[in-house]
């Protein structure tokens, strides 16, 4: 459903994303984790078609993100961290806008259902600029869900959400994955998302440090007490040589300069 091949992104003279490759099948939920400035948001924006990659190929449902952008946009939803909203539109009007733009059938009942699910039903006529940060986040998530995308990119979606909303969001993500939607979820709260994620993509300094299942990540660092410990170990110790030693089935392609790519 989603393939990334040798993605690179250069901002000025800063290499924000350095030759990353991975692929996800339909129904997978991938946690995109890494320290601040690891290149997670840039990777998501490239996938969403908001910024063009400097090099590399991106495919969504067999469609090339750069060359078939219109068709990709119909299939992919992106909800950024701190989503910008229209200050002059109400909650309901935001959903009407998305329904119109994506030609959603039976949009009114779908939007009512989503608003009820995320506790925004009573805010339907409130202007977006009167919402709290968490509510803005939930509205953006509702907008992303409304047109039934095949791929969902959620950048730090838990930020600002209260515990019931976090539970609601994670349950909805599992439900969508059960219907075949591929999801990438970026978050620093590994302990909260580990039980819903099928795959883990660990990034650091623009490079992939690890890509695989949670069990594989913990397997690399048997001394780790939790997945979070394994993640800390991965981002502080992981090297291509260590990866080959631990897991020979990982293909290590050492690139030019200091970059390296780990592919499954």
């Amino acid at each position: 459903m989603l393939q990334v091949h040798e993605l690179q992104k250069l901002y000025g003279s800063t290499l924000a994303v350095d030759r990353i490759s991975f692929s996800l099948d339909a129904g997978k939920i991938c946690a995109l984790v890494g320290p601040n400035g690891a290149g997670k948001t840039t990777t998501m924006r490239c996938l969403a078609g908001l910024i063009a990659p400097t090099a590399g190929e991106l495919w969504v449902g067999g469609l090339n993100v750069g060359k078939q952008s219109l068709a990709v946009r119909r299939r992919l939803a992106y909800v950024p961290d701190e989503p910008p909203l229209f200050d002059d539109l109400t909650v309901g009007q935001h959903l009407d806008l998305i329904a119109g733009l994506y030609d959603v059938v039976d949009s009114r009942s779908k939007s009512d259902e989503l608003l009820a699910k995320f506790g925004l039903a009573s805010k339907v006529n409130d202007l977006a600029n009167s919402l709290s940060r968490g509510m803005r986040q939930k509205l953006a998530i509702c907008c992303g869900y409304l047109f039934d995308p095949k791929v969902l990119l959620l950048d730090e979606p838990l930020t600002g959400l209260d515990p019931p909303s976090i539970r609601c969001l994670l349950e909805s993500i599992e439900e969508l994955a059960g219907r075949g939607v591929t999801i990438i979820l970026s978050s620093h709260l590994l302990a909260m998302i580990e039980h819903v994620c099928t795959d883990f993509l660990v990034m650091q300094c623009g490079r992939v440090e690890f890509f695989g299942t949670g069990a594989e990540l913990r397997g690399r660092f048997p001394q780790s007490q939790s997945l979070e410990d394994a993640y800390f170990a991965a981002t502080s110790q992981f090297t291509p040589a260590a990866a080959v030693a631990v897991c020979p089935e990982l293909a290590i392609d050492t690139g030019v300069g200091n970059s390296h790519v780990v592919t499954m």
Binding site: R73, P84, L85, F86, I98
Partner: peptide, 11 residues
């Protein structure tokens, strides 16, 4: 920014 995200990214 809101237009770029919701309208610019729409099909």
């Amino acid at each position: 920014p809101a237009e770029t995200l919701w309208i610019g990214r729409a099909p």
